[in-house]
Write a protein that binds this DNA or RNA. Structure first.
Length: 661
DNA sequence: CAGGTGTTGGAAGT
DNA sequence: ACTTCCAACACCTG
């Protein structure tokens, strides 16, 4: 951090629950303070088992923290709870989540591998242990395990994002009803986002400087939590009710009926096959095809990658995200993001690992060429925290409507809502805007006719990962650069396909790239040809992911539609036949986008303005575009006139362009 | 309220 | 690899 570190102050701990419960002060270690919810003593005594008084039976609920290293929530649970008679690390597969959310095969695959790997880590430390995996909604599983295993404590790593808050509120309420003590401990971020927001008077952090300035008053980032060497045994693993058909039901209702795919066998009961009842499901059991990615999940794999990076002090010391090359065939960055997303590595391991390496590297070598924040790794991690603090403080962060920080721009294909404010789903195809539907589809499946964009999107689908700046390039193209399509639509595709998808960083970066929030220099647009050419004139990534173009000469690799027919024939790839013609005119659409966004900025609406909610803003803005000559038809006419003035050569070029369109 | 800065633009110059 | 200009936004500092 660039800011001077203040002396260590006690970190505040924020309860995300509204329940008023006595909070026990624990004079323990340096670990972040957990939120502890105790059940009301007088109530629900009748639901407790007779042997409850004799010791603690503890569930550690894993969510996106699939590791044993640097896991403050686990360490805290084991230190805090005395007389543990039973300990079960569990995972709950919520069928509604599995089948209703857009999660691609590569991400599922990574998750399952990471779960299996975590289970092995438990077994290594206690051969009676594993990751006890259930198939069912968390509320249902917890209720059942209270009945069957006499659970007294439920512990997990705190999550501050909107989805998790709703889920956890339900669990807090259920735990209170059942007489289960909940211990929720921060650990996913450098600082607990709720603490940062509180210190920032309830406001989100919208710039990195804001975040740095707030957190500079919060003391040092915690050191990595110690890895538990031994773990308590599980208690009973017997489930009382062995009527399999009832396990997927609650109070007679089949909870999973509406989400079954027909191919899945995963959710027929709350546990897996009787041969291995608590096992992690396979892709086949979940009804999924095989994944295509080459990126392997797991805490061991994550630590290998971490060690690889930390083992190269020069790389750590001079790491600069904006100067890493998105065109590189081998990732030019660390590829740690998937492992951070699923908690395969701890964020403090990475932070302090880099700090120690850089410190020593500076001593040894003098630290020539050291990069500073925000370009270096520390800055990257701070940005992740900044987005988390924004997401946690801003309702509807993941969409335009109702989002107070999101500038309103009259994008094509915006999400539509009914009169009650509910999104209309499944989303109807916009018959009035077939052009945008075509553009979105071409973008998603890598058929835009711009090789750089297509290569990136095909890599994204295949690997579940593309370079950060490649994400910028394709996002800019879809939104503020050329296509003028709502960032919500692009965000959804990333949501589905990225292994490292994050509920705060993804919408945050989409708002950034669409100049809707965080960033406002909408006139800076990535070139579709010039930009990738800066770092790779040979188009290696294009040749790999768009193999139909592999025999084009370097000169035309990013713009094959400009190659003479003879060149196309020699490359055995005719544009418009073997590879698509460009779906739009790069420069014409860029000018149009800039002009319309300028109109929108002047009108200055945000997602939560009444005019946006009732549709007035869109109408007004489109009128202004019309007046200013910023509609498609007007712009094309103007373009024709301009080119006529400029002479025959320019006109020829334009006619060619028109044919392409 | 002017002026500097902002992780990652392009084009044309040195 | 660096500078300047392009036309221009929002935030922060003094």
């Amino acid at each position: 951090m660039t800011k001077p570190k203040s002396t260590k102050t006690s970190q505040t701990s924020t309860s995300i629950s509204t329940h008023k419960s006595p909070k026990k002060e624990v004079p323990l270690s340096e670990l972040p303070k957990p939120t502890i919810i105790s059940p009301k003593k007088s109530k629900n005594k009748s639901t407790l088992r007779d042997d409850d008084e004799g010791g603690a039976r503890v569930l550690y609920w894993h969510r996106t923290d699939l590791r044993l290293t640097d896991l403050p929530a686990l360490v805290r649970a084991l230190e805090e709870i005395k007389d543990i008679k039973g300990f079960w690390p569990i995972w709950c597969f919520d069928p509604e989540y599995v089948y209703k959310h857009r999660v691609g095969l590569n991400r599922w695959n990574f998750l399952l591998e990471s779960m299996n790997n975590l289970s092995e880590q438990y077994e290594k430390r206690n051969d009676k242990q594993k990751l006890w995996t259930f198939r069912g909604r968390p509320e249902f599983i917890i209720r059942k395990l209270k009945l069957d295993w006499g659970i007294t404590h439920l512990c997990f790593e705190k999550d501050s994002n909107a989805y998790s808050k709703v889920r956890d509120e339900k669990v807090f309420a259920l735990a209170e009803e059942l007489g289960i003590r909940v211990i929720s401990t921060p650990g996913r971020h450098l600082y607990d986002p709720d603490d940062v927001i509180k210190l920032n008077k309830g406001k989100p952090t919208m710039t990195l400087h804001q975040w740095q300035s707030v957190t500079s008053k919060m003391g040092d980032i915690e050191k990595p939590a110690p890895t538990p060497e031994s773990l308590p045994d599980p208690g009973s693993i017997k489930l009382e009710d062995n009527h399999e058909e009832d396990w997927g039901k609650y109070e007679g209702v089949d909870l999973n009926a509406d989400v079954r795919t027909g191919k899945d066998t995963c959710f027929e009961s709350i546990i897996g096959p009787l041969s291995d009842p608590f096992s992690v499901p396979t892709m086949a059991q979940m009804g999924f095809e095989e994944a295509t990615t080459t990126i392997k999940g797991g805490t061991i794999e994550g630590h290998k990658r971490l060690d690889l990076f930390l083992g190269d002090p020069d790389k750590v010391g001079t790491f600069s995200k904006p100067h890493s090359e998105p065109t590189s065939l081998e990732p030019s960055t660390t590829l740690l993001s998937p492992y951070i997303k699923f908690g395969c590595i701890g964020i403090r391991e990475l932070w302090w690992g880099c700090k120690d390496v850089v410190e020593k590297w500076k001593e040894d070598t003098g630290g020539k060429g050291e990069t500073k924040e925000p370009e270096n790794m520390f800055g990257q991690l701070q940005f992740r925290d900044m987005y988390a603090c924004a997401e946690a403080a801003i309702p509807h962060f993941e969409r335009i409507r109702g989002n107070s920080v999101c500038k309103y721009i009259a994008w094509n294909l915006q999400n539509q809502y009914d009169l009650n404010g509910n999104e209309i789903l499944p989303r109807p195809i916009d018959k009035d805007d077939e052009e945008s539907e075509k553009r979105l589809n071409a973008w998603k499946f890598g058929k835009t006719g711009f090789p750089w964009i297509d290569a990136c999107m095909r890599q994204l689908k295949y690997e579940g990962w593309i370079h950060h700046l490649a994400r910028h390039s394709v996002a800019c193209f879809l939104t503020r650069g050329q296509c003028y399509i709502s960032w919500e639509r692009g965000m959804e595709v990333f949501d589905e396909w990225l292994i490292d998808w994050d509920p705060a960083s993804n919408p945050g970066n989409w708002m950034w790239l669409s100049a809707s929030a965080f960033y406002s220099q909408y006139f800076r647009v990535y070139g579709l040809v010039s930009w990738p050419q800066k770092t790779d004139k040979t188009g290696a990534l294009v040749r790999k992911y768009c193999p139909e173009l592999k025999d084009f000469p370097d000169k035309y690799i990013y713009s094959p539609h400009l190659a003479p027919l003879a060149v196309q024939e020699k490359a055995k790839c005719i544009i418009g036949k073997d590879y698509p013609s460009p779906i739009l005119d790069e420069h014409l659409e860029k000018d149009l986008c800039i002009a319309r966004i300028k109109d929108a900025y002047h009108l200055n609406y945000h997602g939560n303005d009444q005019d946006v909610l009732d549709g007035t803003a869109e109408k007004k803005l489109k009128e202004i575009h019309e007046q200013n000559g910023h509609t498609h038809e007007q712009k094309k006419e103007e373009d024709v006139k301009k080119r006529k003035r400029d002479g025959a050569g320019a006109l020829d070029k334009f006619v060619k362009r028109e044919k392409v369109n």
